[in-house]
Amino acid sequence: MNLILEEISKRNRKVFKNFFNKNYKDLVVYANGYLFDKDSSEDIVQETFIYIWENADKLKIKTSLKGYLYAMVRNRCLNFLKSIKVTDNFEFLEFNLNLITEHVFDSTSEEDKKIVYHQILKIVDALPDKMQQVVKLKFLHNYKYSEIADELGISVNTVKTQLKRAKSKITALVTSIIVLLQMC
């Protein structure tokens, strides 16, 4: 059994803390390569360390502990992507923007429509780099999910995840802009 794992199974907090501090940042970067979301990446890495702390005495590692740790993080990232169940059947951002234009723009002046449009462009420009690239390829260049994935060297699920997250951010900000415009 790995000495570090043996000490962790004995509840040696100092060894665990050193093991955590030595690997945490690199694992978050690694997870972020799958998820492109720092908060979710941090959560997954923390959950992985908690699992190791709680189950160290039961783990049977045939390779290195570090390799096992990276495999756990990778698998948890892939499971997370599956769990959000983003499907090809929905064009979330287009759907959302259509809803906004149908319900709000009908009663909005041309000047307000221009303001909202320019704010949407600013919101897209303020998105994290990878998310921004995905959104622009999808909605400015009409790329398919698979084409975006190939272009950026990421998985189709990551493309879907990024579009879903972008939709949430854009929806929240556009809704507040429209409310403000209607108040004026």
Rank of each mutant, 00 (worst) to 15 (best):
V159P: 06
F19H: 03
K82M: 05
L69K: 05
A172N: 12
V86T: 10
D150I: 04
T63R: 15
D88W: 04
Y117P: 00
V179R: 13
L163H: 01
M183Q: 14
R74S: 14
F139G: 03
Q182G: 14
K14M: 00
F90H: 13
I178H: 01
L65F: 00
H141E: 14
L173G: 00
S176Y: 06
L163E: 06
Q119R: 15
I123Q: 02
I4G: 04
N55Y: 01
I44K: 13
V116A: 07
E94L: 12
S64T: 15
K136P: 00
V15G: 08
L35E: 06
V159I: 07
I154T: 06
N79M: 05
M1Y: 06
I61L: 03
V29D: 10
C184N: 13
V174R: 08
I148G: 04
D129T: 14
E151P: 00
L65S: 04
I61H: 01
P128Q: 10
P128F: 04
F36A: 12
Q46F: 11
K66H: 09
V159G: 07
I52H: 04
I50H: 09
T175G: 07
K160F: 02
V86A: 15
F95P: 00
I61A: 08
T171I: 03
N75Y: 07
N96K: 11
V124F: 03
V86P: 00
E6F: 07
M183N: 10
K160M: 12
L163N: 04
Q182W: 05
F90N: 12
K136E: 06
N55V: 07
L3F: 06
K17N: 11
Y51N: 09
E54M: 13
L81H: 08
V29T: 09
L152S: 09
Y117H: 12
I84H: 02
Y30D: 05
A172Y: 11
N21L: 14
L97V: 11
I61G: 03
Q182Y: 09
S176I: 12
E6D: 13
L173N: 10
S176N: 13
I50S: 12
V174Y: 01
I120R: 02
K62S: 07
K60C: 03
S64C: 07
K113A: 09
E147P: 07
L35T: 02
T101S: 15
L81S: 08
S40V: 12
T48S: 15
D129A: 14
E111S: 15
I8E: 08
L97K: 06
A149G: 06
F105K: 11
N18R: 15
L127G: 07
S9V: 01
N21R: 11
K25N: 12
N142L: 10
I177E: 10
V134I: 15
K25G: 01
K160T: 01
K138H: 10
W53C: 02
V15E: 10
T63M: 05
V179Q: 08
D150A: 14
K25W: 01
R13S: 04
L152F: 06
E110G: 11
T171C: 00
K136V: 10
L69C: 08
A166M: 04
